[in-house]
Amino acid sequence: MLDWRWDFTFDILPRLLVATGNTLMAAGFGYAIAVVLGLVFALAQRTPSRVLTVLVREIVEFIRSTPLVLQIFFVFYVGPQFGLRLSPWTAGMIAIGLHYAAYLSEVYRGGLDSVPKGQWEAATSLNLSTARTYFRVIIPQAMPPSLAGMGNYLVGILKDTPMLSVIGVAELMHTANAIGSETYRFLEPYTLVGIIFLALSLPTAAAIRIFESWLRKKLGMI
């Protein structure tokens, strides 16, 4: 029957906490890539070129409907076949960044669509260039409505980092697996990983909700 060992728990806790740092780093890097690349995907779908729009749209759909874990394997193993070796971290960041860029581009798309048409007309009548219109007028207004969705995917990316363990990124899940196979004890490491994830994601989600309602009030949306 169940025997939870506290001494063992405190033995492995430091290792898990170090790994938590790696998890946070992976989520942070991945999210940074996704935030920028997602905007590229969203803007690419608004160019006059029909071909580019359809192409990017299909790529986004493809990335969104296939499993992240398979994409991680794909990025990690396909490179070496063509003579390009990627470290687990690089491959992992590319895969998770691309995956969430596809999701975030949908969030941005909604935000960009919500900017009133008059803003475009005003920018045109002021003779602003397209780049200036986007970066000084449209994107700043598209950001606030996108922030809620962006926050949800921040929590999402954090919860998806355990998948990086499959290619050997030393994050939480990977460390828990290692402890499990060294000591044949799975109860404590896996339970602690679950608790650490709860301790990270519940406050983050709560903070995002508070921020969202603060933002709505601030923008006079209530």
């Binding site: 355990p162 899940m173 799975f186 896996y190 339970t191 990983v193 679950g194 994830f197």
Partner: peptide, 10 residues
């Protein structure tokens, strides 16, 4: 609040 992978292993 936790990952599917964590739940699966658990």
């Amino acid at each position: 609040g936790t990952s599917l992978l964590v739940q699966l292993y658990w």
